[in-house]
Design a protein around this nucleic acid. Structure first.
Lengths: 229, 229
DNA sequence: ACCTGAACACCGTTCAAGT
DNA sequence: ACCTGAACACCGTTCAAGT
């Protein structure tokens, strides 16, 4: 066998990089380690990502936030009793009401971010004009117009929705991260926190329900407001 | 002069590190570069942060999100016509209604994050049980109880508020980051986006107004909901 | 206690070379 | 076109040593 043509591809590289991030953390993602995992010299990666690690990071973010791929994977898992060789059809238009479309998008996006929480710091630098981002924005704008918003209020609502979902994932990842041993336990200076945590331990929080409650509140709030600001 | 006792302190180190982050970006914050800026060997930093760079990162995050220091600085700038040597008094209790307290907190926190947007990736890993974090949570819980919420709904509302503010800063930093030259311009596949951007260019967005609108919507939504979920 | 200086085990990336 | 291998300029961190 030849040492060339090791069958490298951008998708294989991104998948393996994500595997390292999920397993060892973002800090352990090294070009050399990634090369080892791919059974290739580290420098071979630069042929597929000439701009280096930053470009690889961008590709990872696009991969994680590619809603179409996520939906296709879910559909393939559902329809495994239909093993014909046909390509997946053009995705059927979603005819449900605006709020159900937004709730589905939010749930899917949140799931994708949580599944790869080790890459969250990369998501922060996500380019707003990438194709998956524009596709999500288009979905949001169409939904909020159907809800009755117009003009700047539509874009404001879309921004608020994206902000909430991103922030909620960060909040949850923080809350479920391993506690530092020397952390100050809430004492008399924080009476409300103490009382509320006595009723509900931080470890017992239902993050899915909390996320849904906040999302409902946000959607109700942005669509109840007058159409202009 | 001796080569020892260079006057290093954790505060000086953190301040200088933040200066490098603001000026050159987080990626350029190096122990060696930080040492140069402090006129000291890089290894001297380890005497004040024995756990290394991660510990320094935590200190930077605490510094940025220390609401008390921010408020004290603002107060000192206001009261510069009162140059007596007295220490700043115990902060007066804020007797305004719950929503004004939350709006002030949100504005201050957002300002602090935006001022050091290069450190945003560090903020993601912010420990939820640090003292500034608990202080903010206490403020949130007291306000939402005053608004009529009870039990889990109070903590849910506090989580939603923190999520929104954090996410909104990330959204804004993304939106105002330099555009990639090869970014796909919105075309016929994104009709709503195209139409809305024709009316309001992305560069013309009033991010302060947008933030306020979303915050108002969120506060209205979480307090309009029934007290339990 | 506080800082120095050399050393170690890594990094990302460039570049010429191989097939 | 696709990959290798050596090399360069860095990193974070350890450790013994200085004062």
């Amino acid at each position: 066998m030849s040492r060339n043509n090791a069958g490298l591809s951008t998708e294989r590289i991104v998948t393996e990089a994500l595997h390292i991030i999920d397993g060892l953390g973002l800090g352990k993602l090294t070009m050399r380690r990634l090369g080892d995992a791919l059974q290739v010299e580290a420098m071979a990666i630069y042929h597929h990502f000439p701009l280096g690690k930053e470009q690889l990071f961008d590709a990872i973010v696009e991969f994680i936030t590619d809603a179409d791929r996520i939906r296709a994977e879910a559909a393939a898992a559902d329809a495994d009793a239909e093993p014909d060789g046909t390509e997946p059809d053009e995705p059927a238009p979603d005819n449900r009401p605006w709020d159900q479309r937004l709730r589905s998008w939010a749930a899917d996006y949140r799931t994708a971010l949580l599944r790869h929480s080790g890459a969250l710091t990369l998501i922060i630098n996500r380019r707003p004009d990438t194709e998956p981002a524009l596709r999500a924005l288009e979905l949001h704008c169409a939904a909020f117009e159907e809800a009755g918003l117009r003009g700047a209020a539509v874009l404001d609502a879309a921004a608020a929705l994206d902000s909430y979902v991103t922030g909620a994932v960060i909040h949850q990842v923080r809350a479920t991260s391993i506690a530092t041993p020397d952390a100050p336990r809430p004492d008399g200076r924080f009476p409300h926190v103490v009382a509320l945590r006595a009723a509900q331990s931080p470890d017992a929080v239902d993050h899915d329900a909390r996320f849904g409650a906040g999302l409902d509140a946000l959607l109700a709030g942005v669509t109840a407001a007058p159409g202009h600001r």
